[in-house]
């Protein structure tokens, strides 16, 4: 568990490091999301015990969650449209 935790801290420091070296925003956003998903997966897998005991139908529920978030992202183009509407 300590190893997992150290890995989490290391990823956190790496993320902060991205800010330090002033990565280009688009690249930085992509990297940050990837690293954060990795951290979330680590926490869920080891700390939340998905490795040993999974609640029933978790894949289906997770799929629904991701589908909902994906759908909500459909709102984003409206934000971009706002530029042309001004």
């Amino acid at each position: 568990m300590i190893a997992v935790w150290l890995l989490l801290v290391a990823i956190t420091l790496a993320e902060a490091g991205l800010a330090w070296v002033h990565t280009a925003p688009a690249l930085m956003l992509a990297l940050l999301l990837l690293l954060s998903l990795a951290k979330a997966a680590l926490i869920a897998w080891y700390f939340m015990h998905l490795k040993s005991a999974r609640p029933k139908h978790l894949p289906a529920f997770l799929f629904t969650l991701f589908a909902c978030v994906g759908l909500l992202l459909a709102i984003l183009p409206e934000g971009i449209r706002a530029w042309s509407m001004r």
């Binding site: 759908l71 909500l72 709102i75 409206e78 934000g79 706002a82």
Partner: peptide
């Protein structure tokens, strides 16, 4: 802000 945003959230 964006009033459309609320409509999206509300109707979701």
């Amino acid at each position: 802000g964006s009033p459309l945003l609320f409509q999206h959230l509300f109707w979701f």
